Amino acid sequence: MRINRVKFVSEITRQDITLVELAKKADVSRVTLSSIKCGKSCSDAIGYKIAKALNINVKDLLED
């Protein structure tokens, strides 16, 4: 799954949440979130965990 890094960064900024806080909430590592923030892809399971933790639809994070 390829998460759009701009949408990802915009959403965590909008929600005023740090990567450490999101990592705890989504039960994924901070390193994984940093990789996604830098444009790397992730598994579908990780993408859904992140979307759930941010309380948004996973489609809102995906690249167009």
Rank of each mutant, 00 (worst) to 15 (best):
E11N: 11
C42H: 07
V28S: 15
I12Q: 00
I50C: 02
S10W: 10
L54F: 07
R30I: 01
D27W: 06
I36L: 05
R5L: 10
A26T: 01
Q15N: 04
L54M: 11
K40H: 11
D64T: 06
I12D: 00
T32S: 15
Q15I: 00
E63T: 09
F8L: 03
A23F: 01
S34G: 13
I17Q: 03
I50S: 03
K25Q: 09
V6P: 06
V58R: 09
V28Q: 11
I50Y: 03
R5Q: 15
D64V: 05
L54D: 12
D44L: 09
A23C: 04
E11K: 14
D16N: 15
L61D: 11
N4G: 11
A53P: 09
V20Y: 07
F8H: 01
R5N: 13
D44Y: 14
L33K: 15
C42L: 06
I12L: 07
D27S: 15
V31A: 05
K37Q: 13
V9A: 01
V9T: 02
V9F: 04
L33A: 14
V28F: 05
T13W: 07
S35H: 08
T13R: 15
M1P: 03
I56C: 06
D64A: 11
E11L: 13
R2Y: 13
D16P: 08
K7G: 10
V9I: 09
K49I: 00
I56E: 05
C38N: 15
I12V: 08
A51M: 10
I3T: 05
T32P: 14
L33I: 12
L54S: 10
T18G: 02
R2Q: 15
N57P: 00
Q15A: 01
R5K: 15
I56M: 06
I50G: 00
N55T: 08
N55V: 05
V9R: 12
V31L: 03
A23G: 09
I3K: 07
K25M: 09
D60Y: 07
A26K: 03
S10M: 10
E21Y: 00
L62R: 01
L54H: 11
R30H: 08
T13D: 09
L62P: 11
I36C: 04
K52S: 03
R5M: 10
K7P: 07
G47S: 04
N4Y: 13
G39S: 06
K25G: 02
I12M: 08
K40G: 08
S41V: 05
R14M: 05
I17D: 03
L33W: 14
L19A: 00
L62F: 09
T13A: 14
V20M: 06
I12S: 00
S34N: 13
K24Y: 00
T18W: 00
T32A: 14
N55D: 13
T32V: 08
K25L: 13
I12W: 05
K49R: 12
G47N: 02
V58A: 14
L61N: 11
K40F: 10
K7L: 14
G39W: 00
A23M: 05
K24V: 02
K59Y: 13
I56G: 01
K40T: 11
T13S: 14
Y48R: 14
A45R: 11
D60C: 08
R14H: 12
L22D: 01
N4P: 15
C38L: 15
E21F: 04
I56W: 07
D64C: 08
K37Y: 04
L33E: 14
I46M: 06
V6R: 06
S34D: 13
A23Y: 02
